[in-house]
Design a protein around this nucleic acid. Structure first.
Lengths: 192, 192
DNA sequence: TATGTTGATGTCAGCGAGTGACATCGCAGC
DNA sequence: GCTGCGATGTCACTCGCTGACATCAACATA
């Protein structure tokens, strides 16, 4: 009578939750898609309607992270040089990760022990790099500079994020980003 | 009588050759491991004794590339600052790619159209990055600087290599590396 | 009210990647 | 000649993933 729908709502969310729990409990490889689907009250086939593969369920947030990056970057005045615009963007992004500290750490602990998941993470970061480069180009940066600055920004992100995770999220991520940027400028500027 | 061995020699080489040919002929996804093995005169099971998976056959050279990188880096005098040591190393590496131009381009054309292969390429480059960072640390660089310079070097490598492939290998790779390094220094140094 | 359409889900059959266990058999050393 | 070894083959199996088709509540519309 008052059933709003034929099925429980938020199937995708239930699948994410179930997958995360099982990956933590028994590891990624030891978890089958059928188990995830069963726990979410769905079938294996339905899992693959929501996620292209077993790994993707852990990277559902990648698209919104990319969106955040690009939108933030666009909001920085064009007078700011690319490298500083990226630094400013990372500063904003840091907040998002600190807010979701627990989730980020748990997720990273799953990825850290599985090469397949690391591969997926790397290609998401590559996609992010391309998006940043594109955004820089539309700010007027030339091709080569846009690509290199985007890569530099992601390098800083990777290195600092890794350090943040190693500190169990106790350090200030934005501060680590700044430090890494400073070190990068120092290390690249010292030559020649 | 004069059979040197019970089996044809160089099984691994035959598998690589067969795989490459088939990947070019009909694409990576459309090729089954059984087909590769058959063409090499072996069985599917034997393929998996030589390569952990279907993708790895295209990345057999990654280990020697990493070795080349690290050895070359070690041979640069310690008085040279990290970023310049990496630049010098890339200069040497460029030669290896120019020598194998045809192979490199063909291989890249296979990888370029397949996300799975791109993922594998990225994790190989990540491994290379870690090895470079380690080599820099053993040259006396501090943790953070080593990581960042290694990432910067690989970023230059990626961007310039991409450009080289786009030019069908007609440009001078070493020159493109230099240009990218210069641009990176400019772009990171311009801020603050 | 009857009827048709839609969209999320289920069912089923199948392919191909990858693995473990065991068999085979030439070759090298004893 | 016997024996152990190492490279290969055979077989059976799990699991990720896909295509084709069925189901069925909800909704629209006549």
């Amino acid at each position: 009578m008052c059933m709003v729908s034929r099925w429980e709502p938020n199937a995708r969310g239930r699948l994410v939750e179930a997958a995360l729990a099982l990956y933590v409990e028994r590891g990624f490889e030891q978890t089958t898609v059928m188990e995830i689907a069963k726990r979410a009250g769905l079938t294996e086939r339905t899992f693959f309607r929501y996620f292209t593969d077993k790994r993707e369920v852990l990277f559902w947030g990648a698209a919104s992270l990319q969106e955040l990056f690009v939108d933030t970057l666009r909001s920085v005045p064009e007078s700011v040089v690319p490298i500083d615009a990226v630094a400013a963007t990372l500063n904003v992004v840091a907040g998002v990760f600190q807010e979701r500290r627990e989730f980020a750490l748990q997720r990273q602990s799953i990825i850290a022990v599985n090469p397949e998941l690391q591969e997926r993470e790397l290609i998401k970061l590559a996609s992010l790099t391309a998006a940043i480069a594109q955004a820089l180009r539309s700010r007027g940066a030339d091709e080569l500079a846009a690509d290199l600055v985007a890569h530099a920004g992601i390098a800083v992100f990777k290195v600092a994020f890794e350090g943040w995770v190693a500190s169990a999220g106790t350090n200030d991520l934005a501060h680590m980003f700044s430090e890494s940027f400073a070190e990068l400028k120092l290390a690249t500027g010292a030559g020649a």
